[in-house]
Design a protein around this nucleic acid. Sequence first.
DNA 1: CCTTGATCCTCCAGTAACTGGAGATTGTAA
DNA 2: TTACAATCTCCAGTTACTGGAGGATCAAGG
Lengths: 131, 131
Amino acid sequence: MQIGKIARATGTKVNTVRYYEEIGLLKPAPRSQSGRRIYADADVERLVFIRRARGLGFSVSEVRSLLEVSDAPNRDCKDAANLARNHLRRVEEQIEQLQAMRQELIGLARACDGGTATDCGIIGGLARKSA
Amino acid sequence: MQIGKIARATGTKVNTVRYYEEIGLLKPAPRSQSGRRIYADADVERLVFIRRARGLGFSVSEVRSLLEVSDAPNRDCKDAANLARNHLRRVEEQIEQLQAMRQELIGLARACDGGTATDCGIIGGLARKSA
DNA sequence: CCTTGATCCTCCAGTAACTGGAGATTGTAA
DNA sequence: TTACAATCTCCAGTTACTGGAGGATCAAGG
């Protein structure tokens, strides 16, 4: 299949597929006589893997590592497990940060009763040095 | 005061202060004879405002809008309130997304019992097309 | 007076992970 | 044949900084 089809099949943009090849997540696809990239079903699977990992928030370099493990079936999956654990911790930290932001934003919004900027709790709250 | 001091006072890097000037969040600072930027107390307040808004996750262009409201004391703060509400919604969406990721990551990690990559629930889970 | 170290200046490149577009081919269907 | 879709390569732009090179300036100590 050509690039458009694998892109559609995996919910990826054509340019992004080419980009993944460029940065080495996908191996350089063999080409047709006219130079078009040709993909096999295994490539779809690999691209699904990549998209899914990215969708879970793994960085490209982490995806690269996960693919390495995936490519070596006999390899101990310890590395993958560590990556996942660390990533999970990062995600949880982000959640906490966002929840703190959320509380502050709610506080700010409550302080605004719709007058002029001078009286506005949002503007005033942002101007205050303390959190 | 010079740039180093305002940077220290607000927890901002010197380069970042210059950057904020470049993109117009801070007005071009007057210069000393030798060309160094000179700041007043009001600039510290403004920079605090900017840092605080950025810390709450507002984008630079949103901060620009918030500053506009702040700079026009008689202006209705409706725009600021809208920005804050929309941003709050975005933050809440992000939280939900991250919580979904978290659940999936926990599920993946549970599926790994430390064997080879072939048996690994993490690798296997990523390879499956369904969420 | 001279040197040293801190601070400042401008300009520029790099980061992450794509995304979009220009300009040129190629493939295909009516 | 003619149109139109899909592909190719190359390159610039996005966000919000961050860091560094190379060079000027300033204050303090000897």
